[in-house]
Amino acid sequence: MIAFNNVSKQYGDTAVLSDITFKVAPGEFISIVGKSGAGKSTIIKLLIGEDQPTRGRVLVGSYEVNKLKPDELPQLRRKVGIVFQDFKLLPTKTAYENIAFALEVEGRAQEEIEELVPQMLDLVGLADKKDNFPDELSGGMKQRVAIARAMIHRPAVIVADEPTGNLDHVNANEIMNLLLKINELGTTVVLATHSKDIVNKLRKRVVALENGKIIRDDARGNYEL
């Protein structure tokens, strides 16, 4: 479903990723861990086509991401839900509109949107905040909107880069529970994080990075460095 084949990434002369190879099966929950600067975000960027690898191939479903042209990227982005540390909500759109936007750009029918978005708002527990703008929401609420937006078109994969990085314990737990719930419903989750607590609680597969190399890949991993 997802495969990195001998992927290397250099920025100028500095190698950020060297010879990364791993596979993710459908329905898996995989955490990519490592110290700051280890290359976690770079892996995520290559996965969603935000950047190109220097060498190697990145496969997501039927897409060979490293070969996608800019005008083919929207297709991939509609198959993959993306969640970021800084939420990346559209500030001039309400919670409802932010979620609906992902369907609107796909050309979905209005009736379908009006049916799906409230369902998703319910799922993330924000039905009463649908008309609020992002700066009227707490960090945890913003992240739940972002997850709802990522999930709204039922992607096969959710990619989350440090989704709890800006949140306190309580909110972070809520977000992790949401991601686990999504995973249980059959969606593949790729999580990049440096939070030891989170990874150890998950008891899921862990890929550990150090200086751009995979140093461990455990099916039921702990975060040990």
Partner: peptide, 16 residues
């Protein structure tokens, strides 16, 4: 400009 990038990441094509 950040919004433009966000729209891109959510799968909006250029015309959107």
């Amino acid at each position: 400009r950040e919004e433009l990038g966000v729209m891109r990441l959510v799968g909006a094509s250029n015309k959107f």
